[in-house]
Amino acid sequence: MGYAVVTGASSGLGRSLSVELARRKIPLVLVARNAAALSALASDLARCYKIQAIPVPLDLSDPAAVPQLTRKLAELDKPVDILVSNAGSCERSPFLASKRSAPSLRLMVNSATELARAVLPGMADRKRGRVLFVGSLMSAAGTGPGVAQYAASKAYLATFARSLAKEMEPHGVGVTLTSPGAIRSGFFDSMDGDALCNRIPFYPMSPEAVADRSVRAMVAGLTEVMPGWQNRALAAGTPF
Rank of each mutant, 00 (worst) to 15 (best):
F95G: 00
L234C: 05
S11K: 15
A220C: 03
L105E: 08
K166A: 10
I183Y: 05
C90M: 15
G174E: 06
A9N: 11
S185G: 07
K99E: 15
R15S: 03
C197Y: 12
S16D: 15
S153R: 08
I82F: 05
P227L: 11
L21T: 02
S153K: 09
A102G: 06
L45N: 04
A152G: 13
L76T: 07
H171V: 00
Q52W: 03
S18H: 06
K127A: 12
L76G: 04
I200K: 07
V219F: 07
S93T: 11
C48P: 00
G8P: 03
Q68N: 09
S104W: 01
A217V: 03
S136V: 09
S214A: 15
M123H: 04
L83R: 03
D192G: 03
S39T: 15
R47E: 15
L28C: 10
G144I: 03
P57M: 13
L107G: 00
L21F: 01
G88R: 04
A36S: 15
V66W: 06
G144A: 15
A97M: 12
L73N: 07
A233H: 02
G144N: 14
A42G: 08
A220Q: 15
N86G: 02
A211R: 04
G146K: 07
A236P: 00
T159Y: 06
A165V: 02
L60S: 02
N231E: 14
R92W: 11
V147R: 02
S136T: 12
Q230N: 07
F160Y: 14
S18C: 08
V131F: 05
T113I: 04
P121L: 12
A97D: 15
M108K: 02
M218N: 03
L137R: 11
L234F: 03
A152Y: 05
R23L: 11
L137Q: 14
D59W: 06
V131R: 05
A148V: 13
D212N: 10
L177E: 11
T113L: 12
S214W: 09
F160A: 06
C90W: 07
N110W: 03
G129D: 13
L105G: 00
A217T: 05
R213F: 00
D125C: 01
A140V: 01
L69P: 01
M226F: 01
F95K: 01
G146T: 09
T7V: 06
T113R: 04
S153G: 15
S43Y: 04
T143Q: 14
V173Y: 07
G14I: 06
L38N: 06
A22M: 13
G186E: 14
A209D: 15
